[in-house]
């Protein structure tokens, strides 16, 4: 996945969230995007997730510009998984039902949807909590449900926006363990936007953003120190 000269302006140009971001994310990488509030991290994530259109520049996925993708919803459904800071589960649905919500876009019968949801919840350690509603789950458990949901349709790219932002440090650690494990086991590309250095510490690579630009690109595996 590649970003070329990405720009995004809001309010008729008065607010400039991105001022020309360039970088490449290779398949299977675990990349952390760091930066202070207002540096443009979340905007960048929405552009990568095809939820928003850039004001300038383009995003390419496997060499193809997202602007040219005919069925963006289908692309999001099959290729991407989203994880949000505040989970965004549907409050009226149980854990198993929440995980099935994205599956309506796949040609699977109800029974298969249920089986997949159960398997995914078991994989994130919630096999015993299938029929609990979000309100009866802890923050960490909710984020696990959200992660299971993001994996529902077997995506190739996971986009996470501050996944530990609303969690205490113990839960946060467990969620990071889980994300790391998924990344390792399923070999999927993982882009995490965060300002938590512990999250960045788990990533192989950290992009630092300031005022809408990528200001540094560090690869931990090559021994570059991580400063915070």
């Amino acid at each position: 996945m590649e970003a070329r000269g990405l720009e995004r302006r809001f309010d008729g140009g008065r607010v400039q969230a991105l001022r020309g971001a360039d970088f490449v994310v290779r398949e299977g990488e675990f990349v952390a995007v760091m930066g202070p509030s207002g540096s443009g991290k979340s905007t960048l994530l929405q552009l990568l997730g095809a939820l928003d259109r850039p004001s300038g520049g383009e995003v390419l996925f496997r060499g193809e510009p997202l602007g040219a993708v005919h069925d963006l919803a289908g692309f999001r459904a099959r290729t991407l998984g989203f994880i949000f800071q505040s989970f965004h589960l549907l409050p009226t649905l149980t854990a198993a039902e929440n995980v099935q919500v994205p599956m309506f876009e796949m040609p699977w019968p109800p029974r298969e949807r249920r089986a997949r949801a159960e398997a995914l919840l078991a994989a994130v350690g919630l096999g015993e909590r299938l029929d609990h509603r979000p309100a009866t789950l802890s923050g960490g458990e909710r984020q696990r449900v959200a992660i299971a949901r993001s994996l529902a349709n077997g995506p190739q790219l996971l986009l996470a926006d501050e996944p530990t932002g609303n969690l205490d440090s113990e839960s946060a650690g467990k969620i990071l363990d889980l994300l790391e494990r998924i990344h390792a086991e399923r070999g999927m590309t993982l882009v995490v936007v965060t300002h938590d250095p512990r999250v960045a510490g788990r990533a192989r690579r950290t992009l630092r953003m300031l005022d809408g630009r990528v200001v540094s690109d560090e690869d931990q595996r090559e021994g570059a120190p991580c400063s915070s």
Partner: peptide, 11 residues
């Protein structure tokens, strides 16, 4: 919530 549904791939 509709934004979330769109983000997770609903048409």
């Amino acid at each position: 919530e509709i934004g979330v549904l769109l983000a997770i791939g609903w048409r």
